[in-house]
Design a binder for these strands. Structure first.
Lengths: 219, 219
DNA sequence: GGCGTGTCAAGAGCAGTGCTCTCGGAAATG
DNA sequence: CATTTCCGAGAGCACTGCTCTTGACACGCC
């Protein structure tokens, strides 16, 4: 059982994270100020350092949160359409990622934009980053389209990727490419690259999702 | 003809930009300090404001430079293989973009990562941003593969895009998607998303370039 | 040539930042 | 009860973007 001190510590940590989330959504990652976060929580900036050793560590915590959040959104979307066809499920997951990005642009920029801290302690973020990929891999495998590539390219992908995604190794390059295209498309929309280029973003996105589904063997 | 004053002004402006480029490559966009740039040029920070009204304007100038730089790299690569097959030319341009990104990661992050200033005066950057797309569009049109989409999706793309890219309107969605995939793939590699995912980055990249070529009708 | 005008670099200064250190009080441990 | 550990507050350092004022220099006009 947690002592009073431990409970207080967890509570304060959560309060700091909550304030940081608010700040992040309001001013973005670059302008996120540890002192402003401290003011919002009602304590002095030096006290925050008892909980997070630096601003970068606070950002890293927010990064992991964001990865988990978008992963949960994708999993929830997949669960909602569990009975439908693979193509419908694939589209639903793609849409959920786009919707999450539109709703949390600062978080999206934090995880899929340029890395702000010195490559943000990659080890900590790696497990959380793959959750969306796992969801997509399960759908593609369920479809079992049989369309794939050759073994040469398959060797370019890390050997444990097919295992964690639950897919055929020969499907891995196409799956990684589809995963890249998903986040690339959402990122381009969010970061303004589609300004004066794509008018109907929903229609365009659904179309891309469809071709990507085909590319991983979903009929 | 330029007066002595104008020449001096142009020279100082270029010196500031050169120092800013160095700083950008060394510490990244987020940590780029206007005062450090001023120190490197050998003047005081307030003097820099005679040439750039704010730090964001300096960054915007660097953004436009970066867009032009990657565009020139793509054009130069295309010129070098002008006589080859469309597929070879397509691959050469893709590779040139990746090579440029690997050589200038900070610049790449500046233009294809999260936008740091408040959407970075989009109007100024729009023309320069499309140069790579124009190069790719010309190659795809030269191939004339005939493979395309339907008119419904074509309407999702801005009506002037086919014109500036010199492509069939019905090819536009696939072209935009390929363009997105190119920069998404390079970005994922640069920003560490392929850590523990893609081992042989060159082989994987070439493979993606090949499938993208097929998707825009290059046989 | 001399003289106003406009441009420029320099310096001081302001509010804000990340981060460190020290200090007193409170909670947990013996 | 005594001691150790933890935590918040405050002061302070070096730095940032940016503004304002001051003094010097080059330019165009008479």
């Amino acid at each position: 059982m947690p002592t009073a001190r431990e409970r207080a510590r967890a509570q304060t940590t959560e309060a700091i994270l909550a304030a940081a989330r608010t700040q992040l959504a309001e001013v973005g990652a670059a302008a996120l100020s540890l002192r402003a976060v401290a003011r919002e929580v009602g304590m002095v900036s030096s006290a925050v350092y008892r909980y997070f050793p630096s601003r970068d560590e606070l950002l890293t915590a927010l990064i992991i949160e964001a990865y988990d959040d978008v992963g949960e959104a994708a999993e929830a979307a997949a669960a909602l359409v569990a009975g439908r066809s693979p193509r419908e499920r694939w589209l639903a997951v793609w849409r959920s990622v786009r919707a999450w990005g539109l709703e949390h642009p600062a978080q999206y920029a934090l995880i899929y934009g340029s890395p702000v801290p010195g490559y943000a302690a990659p080890q900590d973020t790696l497990p959380a980053a793959g959750r969306v990929g796992v969801v997509l891999g399960a759908i593609a495998t369920a479809a079992d389209g049989g369309v794939v590539g050759d073994d040469d390219v398959a060797a370019a992908v890390a050997p444990d990727v097919p295992g964690t995604l639950g897919i055929d190794p020969r499907l891995a390059p196409a799956a990684v490419s589809a995963w890249t295209l998903l986040f690339g498309t959402v990122g381009f929309e969010l970061f303004g690259q589609y300004e004066n280029v794509v008018i109907d973003r929903e229609a365009y996105f659904d179309h891309v999702a469809g071709t990507a589904a085909t590319s991983v063997g979903i009929g």
